[in-house]
């Protein structure tokens, strides 16, 4: 399934773009730490299966790469000088415990693959990922700083889930299997990214307007 590999690759590229951008600008202005923290929670919850079964070398190495890239981004934003000095905690104030962690839990109780603990956790990670961009969206609307969030980053992250949807449709056409949790979560996620992209373009335009 080529679409799925394109999606995985785009996801990986998005981490690299963000790391390179932070290092290049030597700051993390405009970036939401809360969004990155939620991504780490997503991967830690979903990839518990690393200890449960083996899929492939590709699968295991990608999971480890996703976790380590996110840990590295978090390290840069929170601890590594000078990058961490520019973290704007005052603007990164979306109540993520109240709305994202709890909201995803409610969604996972409503839409899930199974009631077994692992399946519930897996479904929770799908919903958590779908909502993860909200603190970044909130921050972008608040400060309209797009220096670090390049269009490549937004594009790679947004398009990655879209490619997964294409991959699920492709899979459905071949086998007739459909995972409603993944599909619904993926649709919500893609819609939120489209919204994010919309505000991103507006901020980009207004920023350029001021400099002209």
């Amino acid at each position: 399934n080529p679409f799925r590999y394109i999606a995985d690759f785009l996801h990986l590229v998005s981490f690299l773009i963000l790391i390179l951008k932070i290092r290049k600008t030597r700051n993390c202005l405009g970036l939401s730490f809360r969004t990155q923290e939620i991504y780490l929670a997503v991967f830690c919850v979903r990839y518990i299966d690393l200890f449960m079964y083996f899929v492939s070398v590709y699968n295991t190495s990608m999971k480890l790469l996703y976790i380590s890239s996110t840990v590295f981004i978090i390290y840069l934003m929170k601890f590594k000088k000078p990058y961490c000095l520019s973290y704007d905690s005052a603007s990164d104030d979306f109540p993520h415990y109240k709305f994202i962690y709890t909201g995803a839990a409610v969604l996972a109780l409503l839409v899930h693959t199974d009631l077994a603990p692992f399946e519930l956790g897996w479904s929770y990670s799908i919903w958590l990922e779908a909502l993860a961009i909200i603190p970044q969206l909130h921050m972008l609307q608040k400060i309209k700083d797009v220096e670090n969030i390049t269009s490549n980053y937004v594009g790679a992250l947004g398009v990655y889930r879209f490619f997964y949807i294409v991959s699920w449709i492709y899979k459905y056409s071949l086998t007739g299997d459909v995972c409603w949790t993944s599909l619904l979560g993926g649709i919500v996620q893609t819609i939120l990214y489209a919204d994010f992209l919309y505000y991103y373009i507006i901020s980009l335009k207004s920023g350029k307007g001021m400099s002209l």
């Binding site: 799925r4 995985d8 996801h11 979903r46 299966d49 449960m52 079964y53 899929v55 492939s56 699968n59 990608m62 999971k63 996703y66 693959t113 199974d114 077994a116 692992f118 399946e119 897996w122 997964y164 993944s182």
Partner: peptide
Amino acid sequence: QYVKKMHDEL
């Protein structure tokens, strides 16, 4: 069986 299905996607 505890693991009902194997999730091969990331």
